[in-house]
Design a protein around this nucleic acid. Structure first.
Lengths: 214, 214
DNA sequence: CGGACAATTGATTATGCTCAATACTGGTGG
DNA sequence: CCACCAGTATTGAGCATAATCAATTGTCCG
């Protein structure tokens, strides 16, 4: 990981402490920005919490683990999304960079004092919507939901570039890699999408995809 | 539904408006309390939002519907829990009384100004935990999770009284009523629980139940 | 007591998982 | 430059879990 302000490089602790205890009318501080390479961990379950992150670029996966290794990806966070809220004094999930990422770092209280109450709500509504997907949709519908969500996040372009692996998608949708693969192949056979490569998918019939999830 | 203050009965609109526009140092208002009989609806998907509710007594189910009738119960809310936060200007789920309930009613802003930020977080963490249950646990584990959760809510008493039907539990856990029924029968056969009646369950081996979900 | 709803249990089916083999992709070094 | 390798993805075959369909049984009210 590398941490720097928007103005210049600085040691992490120095930059982080620069925002503490400032007076009301002080100039708005430059929040530190941290960069993570693909696959790098940002924090883990059980780690001391206190920082909240806003994604500037790239994609983050948030997940929980069961002791036997089963993994549930709770969310993929992309530009503008906020993650890192903790129930107690430790995080109860993992956060990792899916691809190369940069994130803005804030303290929890600092983040909440700003507009971030909205961010907590976004977290909540996303989680609730995902409960419906996981609890009551069949495999094909979950995959359609995922593609529609990805399309929306990438600004409505019909050609979507997936930063994550099939395993990430599977653990997000509560399925296996094989089922994801078969599902995407079926959508291609049925003419709803076209797989230019495994990670580059063109949506040919968005309305038909939407119809799958009603 | 019946609405009254803690002091005396009053017309709903009168009580609700009594809290609007009060001055800083006015005595703390008596928040209106609404009562709902078992099965009664508190609000529905698409209804104009604005009120937030704290459960005083009874159990509320929060759920979403797919157009073909599939239902996902997002949460059961019991004493002290807060529900009714909306993304936009309308609710995007249903809230119904499972059994006879009473709830304290607040406006969204009023609720958020108080200690209820904590309540939003509780909603979020509950939803995230439920994602893991729905996405990565098998039927038996989901049922064990549910029983453990119910036991905790009822203050650790080993005899738990369920206010909800098997259909409610099934739609909460993303299963069918038959699977719930078989799962509970199996737990009884294995000696982990005892079904005194369909809705009254004694937990005989809590540690064994916990071991099921690791 | 009767009726409606709720719950249980059984038989069969289907969806998605597991196990297995093969193909594709991007990066590294001979 | 190409061969190789590891990680990733696809596809197939058989199986297991939970859904569906169906038949009772139980319970709560009026």
């Amino acid at each position: 990981m590398s941490i720097h302000s928007s103005r210049e490089f600085a040691a992490p602790d120095k930059v982080l402490s620069a925002n503490v205890g400032r007076r009301e009318n002080a100039p708005r501080p430059v929040n530190p920005v941290a960069s993570f390479a693909a696959g790098e961990r940002i924090f883990e379950q059980g780690e001391r919490a206190g920082k909240v992150f806003t994604v500037k670029a790239g994609t983050i996966r948030i997940y929980q683990l069961l002791v036997d290794g089963r993994r549930q990806v709770l969310a993929f966070c992309t530009s503008g999304e906020v993650f890192g809220f903790a129930r107690r004094d430790t995080y109860d999930f993992f956060a990792e960079a899916v691809d190369d990422c940069s994130v803005i770092v804030r303290g929890t209280h600092e983040a909440l004092a700003e507009e971030s109450l909205k961010a907590v709500f976004e977290n909540l509504f996303a989680a609730q919507n995902h409960q419906l997907v996981l609890g009551r949709q069949v495999a094909g519908e979950r995959i359609a939901s995922f593609l529609i969500d990805m399309e929306k996040r990438q600004g409505g372009l019909h050609r979507i570039e997936l930063p994550m692996t099939r395993a990430d998608i599977a653990d997000y949708l509560g399925l296996t890699v094989e089922t994801i693969s078969r599902g995407l192949s079926k959508l291609q056979t049925d003419g709803l999408i076209r797989l230019h490569s495994a990670r580059s998918i063109e949506i040919l019939r968005l309305q038909a995809l939407r119809a799958m999830i009603e």
